[in-house]
Amino acid sequence: MSDFGNAVLARNPAWSQLLGLCPLLAVSTSVVNALALSLASGFVLLGANGCIAAIRHWVPQFARLPCFVLVIATFTTCAVLLMQAFSFELYLRVALFVQIIVTNCMILGRVEAFASQHGVLRALADAAGTATGFALALLAVGAVRELLGHGTLMMGMEMLFPGTEDWGMTVSDAGMLLATLPPGAFIVAGLLLGLGNACFRAGGSRLEKQRASES
């Protein structure tokens, strides 16, 4: 459980380590795109982490990186084929970035730093935590950009879960074009990261002060 919590908050892959920025900025134009990529990344992360934790004793030290990359590439191919089979329309929107999950340094980083040294269960917990943390960051940027850019929230969810056409909300009819264009992604992500820093740093320094006064 502590592995999970650690991975979600303290070591949030996107916010505190700035890993996996490319997909974070590229597919965060709407909540549904963000959710689709989070699910695909989560699938690859769980599969690769679990699988590598299981085979870690048989992988020779000098050949470990190629082995890890091959395992990750296998799970990515599975994710691509699954998405093509079950939600093709959505796949077309995020196609390149699902294929590029292989080179997401977040996944290779977790595999190398955690799964290659721990048992299957702990590796799975860590993967689930990392995936959740990544999904939270992705959904936050996605929600802000969809709201600013299109004035809507959670539109098109039926592409992922059939029968949820009424989840979409229209907040305003006018959208700010900038938020949907590439510069908007950088600026929204930068501002959110700054906001997060402001909140967490303030909280952190308060904790430190508390500790200092206690001791």
Partner: peptide, 10 residues
């Protein structure tokens, strides 16, 4: 990083 991202946006 935050200011780097915002300047990359510009």
């Amino acid at each position: 990083a935050p200011i780097a991202l915002v300047s990359a946006g510009i």
